[in-house]
């Protein structure tokens, strides 16, 4: 906390050259391979990618929750001036659930099925803040109200199995936010929910982030979610960020052919009933990624130059806007 005041202007989270690798018998899986981005207080970052792009492993790396044999092999993660990759386990544990918390896709994975909600919530509070049982319960009640759960007293006495899927996810979000963290990593938290429930949860998360100044990393495959929610977007492909910028920059004038392909394959952007503009082929296998640009075999703009690794090309005067491509699309600003 001491260093915090002096570093007000510094981003809350700076990820620089992060590499998280999984050694396997068949070879090393480079799940995350040189990812860099930063996040300011109160900002919502959409981390977009398809299965296997490394978006979730990036989130778990920040939280120090990568399962062995996987580990962070290079790069740095600085949170509020503190280097997380070398932080001892106990210090990381104090940070987690208090200053940094997480919401995952399946709330049953985080909720304990045999504990009542009140117990689960007060435990989280008391683990980091010794305020006493009564005050903790009061806070738990408030937290449930804030995520739109009516009759919180009744809900506090219930078990997770008595809740609907949407309600469970609300409880999981309430627990994640209960200690007013600076940073929440959310991994596809609304993917399994119905659209009307998703709308409610996005609404509540958006309001909470605005009120409390909590920064969010929202990991998703769904471009329509980031379109409505995020301030900035990073698009991942095969372990790397291939494009980043403000939500408007990335969605309205994508520079990377992969981003363009993803946007073009959204049904609403195609003439009704006509064939969709599809990206040919499949994402590359995690073992034995091709040299150079991993997207080149599916890319309409690829040529000999793409055999060499493209660097992230920034935009002059705007370090947060860039694409990792030798032949970025011209209509980029």
């Amino acid at each position: 906390m001491s260093a915090t005041a002096a570093m007000r202007d510094e981003p809350l989270l700076v990820v620089d050259g992060l590499c998280t690798h999984f050694p396997t018998r068949a070879g090393v899986v480079k799940a995350v391979d040189g990812v860099s981005f930063s996040l300011r207080r109160g900002e919502i970052l959409g981390l977009v990618g398809e299965s296997g792009s490394g978006k979730s492993i990036t989130g778990y790396s920040i939280l120090g929750l990568v399962d062995p044999p996987g580990r962070v092999v290079a790069g740095s993660i600085r949170y509020d001036g503190v280097e997380l990759t070398t932080l001892p386990g106990e210090a990381m544990r104090r940070l987690r659930g208090n200053r940094i918390s997480m919401v995952v896709q399946d709330p049953m994975a985080t909720l304990n099925p045999v504990l009542r909600i009140d117990r689960q919530m007060t435990e989280t509070i008391l683990a980091h803040d010794d305020v006493g049982e009564a005050l903790a319960l009061e806070r738990a009640r408030d937290a449930l109200l804030r995520v739109g759960i009516a009759s919180p007293d009744e809900r506090l006495r219930a078990y997770p199995h008595q809740f609907s899927g949407g309600m469970r996810q609300r409880v999981a979000i309430a627990i994640a936010l209960i200690n007013r963290p600076d940073l929440v990593i959310a991994d596809e938290p609304t993917t399994a929910l119905d659209v009307t429930i998703q709308g409610q949860i996005l609404h509540e998360v958006q309001t909470l982030a605005r009120e409390t100044g909590t920064a969010l990393v929202w990991i998703t495959h769904d471009l329509t979610v980031v379109a409505g929610l995020a301030d900035r977007v990073c698009v991942m492909y095969a372990g790397r960020i291939v494009e980043q910028g403000t939500t408007a920059q990335v969605l309205e004038s994508p520079a990377h052919p992969y981003t363009r392909g993803l946007l073009d394959s959204v049904p609403a952007r195609n003439a009704r009933g006509a064939r969709l503009r599809q990206i040919p082929g499949m994402p590359p296998a995690p073992l034995g990624l091709p040299d150079g640009c991993a997207f080149r075999e599916r890319c309409p703009r690829a040529d000999e130059a793409c055999v060499a690794d493209p660097p992230m090309r920034g935009t002059p005067g705007d370090p947060d806007r860039g694409a990792r491509c030798h032949h970025p699309l011209d209509d980029a600003p």
Partner: peptide, 11 residues
């Protein structure tokens, strides 16, 4: 229903 065109919006 989500739209890619939607800008940051109030749900």
């Amino acid at each position: 229903a989500g739209r890619v065109e939607a800008r940051k919006r109030a749900y």
